[in-house]
């Protein structure tokens, strides 16, 4: 399968999405990423039973924080697929890119530049 997915996506591998914490997602946005998504195994198929459910909760928690600081919460997303679903991965990658493009760049980048200029 030679599937295309957007090159602007940086992949960080984790042993299980249950390892992803709220702070990782927040740091990504704080440091200028336009968005971040967690792609976990299908719900109910986690090797550690609840890793991907935990991940979903944490994405929701991080989205709540973004909302409270005035940044679009849609910049954080959670997807699920099984390891054999290459085409779905490409689909999600495209979907994420579309979502972020619609939102525009992370507002913190412009804010930082403005502060520096002042």
């Amino acid at each position: 399968m030679r599937l295309n997915y957007p090159a602007n996506l940086k992949i960080i591998r984790v042993p299980c999405t249950g390892k992803v914490d709220v702070i990782h997602l927040l740091k990504a946005i704080e440091r200028g990423a336009d968005g971040a998504c967690v792609i976990g195994c299908m719900e109910g198929e986690c090797l550690y039973n609840r890793g991907n459910f935990r991940a979903r909760k944490r994405v929701m928690q991080a989205r709540k924080v973004l909302r409270s600081v005035g940044i679009e919460e849609e910049r954080l997303q959670m997807y699920n697929l099984s390891s054999s679903e290459g085409p779905k991965f490409a689909l999600y990658a495209n979907d994420m890119t579309e979502k972020i493009k619609a939102l525009g760049p992370n507002p913190l980048k412009a804010a930082k530049a403005k502060l520096k200029a002042a």
Partner: peptide
């Protein structure tokens, strides 16, 4: 420690987003 990290990040983003160093 965990909540300190999250709150610190949130506050930094908040103030930056509202144009304050």
């Amino acid at each position: 420690k965990k909540e300190v990290g999250i709150l610190a990040s949130a506050l930094r983003m908040y103030f930056l987003n509202h144009g304050k160093e």
